[in-house]
Design a protein around this nucleic acid. Structure first.
Lengths: 187, 187
DNA sequence: TCATAATTGTGACGTTTATCACGCTAAAAA
DNA sequence: TTTTTAGCGTGATAAACGTCACAATTATGA
């Protein structure tokens, strides 16, 4: 399991075995069952998570109780309510398992310690953050340039596996359309 | 003018005067006129920009020639076509002046050099990137949870100055609605 | 197993938003 | 100044999408 995180990090930066051990010591290994919460809205956000296997949803509940999916987190993804995590505030979103999920988690203190003591890891986090920012911008672009059907097809193309793993209601909620409209698009 | 960048950096990290001089030496100071391009789609993206004064728009042109505003960049903001900048690819978007604008620009090489030689500055860039990511996620959330009128009111509340400085057509393009619909919302 | 809940499709209808068209005003360029 | 262009509002119409209702099917758990 530790290999998973190591290999992931090695894609962006190179560390010695000792350095990898040092990095690993800042993470803890956790297992969750389907429907478990890693983060619950209103509560403190203790950790940022690296998904080893399984599938998570980052969800925002609006005033009418409707759920909106900000992000799916699959294998090799980093996820948290970053706003609350970095500012040590209460979660505005929830992070919940769609499938049984295995993660490495890191507290804010350890994140800061690791960043401070290892410029290489800070570089790794910077690269990850930059690519996260770019991914979000692309999602914004899809809202600006594309209608529901086009966004659906883009998602299908980018993450075909989701359509086997996730109920259509959740895909609709990610795409920003009603489940009925999504159903009509795919038929 | 150099004070502007210094003060901005000091909001997140502390540097000595010597360190600030070192940082400054990686930037170049540039002035642009209204309608000038800092980045043009299809061309190389040489720099990332810090806006000292003025106003920029980050624009994506779709297949039908319609313009979509991914972002406005105001005083104290960092902007680029980050995807192209970091991957040294051709720009998919354009960065253009809405007003006469003064910036500090930094090349990718200098960005990397500065990050490598100054962990403090790497920390600064990491913090900036994280907050950029969070801002983008909030924009995604507004698309998921809000209709055109609500998004309009959120923008009005968050950046009231924009409504004095920017034609409604551009605001519409940022909000993802037609100019006619926006006009009807505000009356 | 059997009962219950979750998921999905679909029709009918209403609302929101886009598109096309036009005119008016203000700003910018010749 | 005169001409041209950009910005803005508004009506008419159509397309996109949401909401409510209902039925059928598939998972899930007691």
């Amino acid at each position: 399991m530790k290999e998973k995180l190591k290999n992931h990090i090695e894609k962006l930066i190179h560390l010695t075995d000792d350095e990898h051990s040092f990095v690993q010591s800042h993470f803890s290994f956790e297992k969750y069952k389907k429907n478990d919460f890693l983060i619950q809205k209103g509560k403190n956000v203790k950790n940022c998570y690296f998904v080893v296997s399984g599938l998570l949803k980052l969800v925002y509940d609006d005033k009418d109780g409707k759920q909106h999916i900000v992000s799916f987190a699959m294998e090799d993804w980093w996820e948290s309510d970053f706003s609350a995590y970095f500012s040590e505030a209460k979660a505005k979103m929830s992070l919940q398992c769609i499938e049984d999920t295995i993660v490495f988690s890191i507290s804010l203190k350890n994140y800061q310690k690791l960043s401070a003591e290892s410029p290489k890891m800070q570089r790794f986090f910077l690269k990850k953050s930059n690519s996260g920012h770019i991914a979000s911008q692309n999602r914004i672009l899809s809202f600006l340039t594309s209608n529901a059907k086009e966004r659906y097809e883009q998602l299908l193309k980018q993450y075909p596996s989701l359509f086997q793993r996730v109920p259509k209601t959740l895909l609709a909620s990610y795409l920003g359309v009603s489940r009925e409209t999504l159903s009509r698009l795919s038929s």
